[in-house]
Design a protein around this nucleic acid. Structure first.
Lengths: 219, 219
DNA sequence: TGCATTAGAAATTTCGAGATTTCAAGGAAA
DNA sequence: TTTCCTTGAAATCTCGAAATTTCTAATGCA
């Protein structure tokens, strides 16, 4: 069992509370390994911003704050619009069909959640499919670094929204918004793509706080 | 002595060759600590992309490639234009004077290098002053995350350009370009700022390769 | 009471030995 | 010759104990 991978999953899916202390000596029991191995995993997570580390004071989960959520959301908007627009330019038909496939898988799961309510199993499937959809959106952008930084920001976003996600309040709007993004991709209209991505995230920004997003002639 | 910090500095200042293998058992001699401590530092560097890590196969420095340099440069342009423009909007006079101060310090060092040629000591001072200048440029952007990601990308940039930096071929143009950036900041013209930052990095892009940069009415 | 000190407990970090895995060279079979 | 296997050496990873630092709370003093 990969300790790093497993703790990472827990850290972005709400298994730990915001601000909770993470003690290697405690977590080791979950994995039957030594504290050093857990410590190693936590250090790597800290470098990725999923865990906070203070010398001689151990590890804790990041605290929640509206400002932090706004910041992370704005960065996701920036990286995803940039990546999606580049994919539109360079990706061609191959990318369009991959995006379609990823969207199909995701919307199937979202429909089931909308219809029969969230179960633990559906939530797991949704997490994976949502990530895959947004990664596919950027997959043809031609920049490994953009993709890597996006994954970092995506994970922090999931982490901060973990409890929110679990309720699936906005499945209906999510379905619409994901659909609108795919439409924009197929239409080849970059301005439309920027707007659709912005709209997808808009409700997670702090109203009134300045936002720096290029939307080009937002109506 | 902080092993992590020290190895990080070496990794971005050309002390290790591209693709070189980094063995904990070897590096421990430089620090008089155990291999585990070195290993811990290397894992953290790997999470930041400054070192590559393969399970059971240890650590090595990233290989050089033109494509990688282009990618990193493009991301620096993107993050720095965004951050600089936000600083222009939110930073006010306080930011302008901090930028002026940082620029003054940097250009003083660059002038000395231009005049009397590079020494090891001047190179060290330049590294610190250059980072401080570019960080000051973003310092009033209002986004901790943007600043954090920029530092990551900045470090990868320094790492890949380490030998190039050491020659100081372009001190003269650097002085001009840094000056132009400060001018744009004081003039409050965001379009000019985007252009000046692009020009500062232009020579490190692969000619002809598509670039996605918003420059707004580049003449 | 309020504040500083300090002793004990708890948590964090370092360490080197041992277990595991990969690498490299030589030899056998096709 | 080429490919596959064997084997010893080298490198990597894991572990729990020991050393260090921080935290807690009880004590003494003003």
């Amino acid at each position: 069992m990969d300790v790093f991978e497993n703790i990472r999953t827990r850290a972005i899916s709400g298994a730990f509370a915001h601000g909770e202390k993470l003690r290697a000596e405690v977590l080791r029991n979950d994995y039957g390994c030594s504290a050093s191995t857990v410590r190693e995993a936590l250090l790597r997570l800290a470098a990725l911003g999923l865990v906070e580390f203070q010398e001689q004071r151990g590890f804790r989960m990041p605290e929640y704050s509206e400002a932090r959520q706004h910041d992370i959301t704005q960065m996701r908007i920036m990286l995803e619009t940039e990546g999606a627009c580049r994919s539109m330019r360079y990706g061609g038909v191959a990318w369009e069909s991959r995006l379609n496939a990823a969207h199909h898988k995701l919307s199937h799961i979202e429909s089931r959640i909308a219809a029969m309510g969230p179960t633990e199993e559906l939530a797991q499937l949704w997490m994976a499919a949502e990530l895959e959809f947004h990664q596919t959106l950027l997959s043809a952008c031609g920049s490994d670094l953009l993709i890597e930084l996006h994954l970092q920001v995506y994970n922090r976003y999931r982490q901060i929204k973990a409890e929110y996600d679990h309720t699936f309040q906005h499945v209906a709007s999510n379905i619409r918004e994901h659909h609108a993004i795919v439409d924009a991709a197929l239409s080849g209209d970059e301005t439309a793509m920027r707007q659709r991505i912005f709209e997808h995230f808009e409700r997670h920004l702090i109203p009134g706080r300045p936002v720096s997003v290029r939307v080009d002639a937002l109506v």
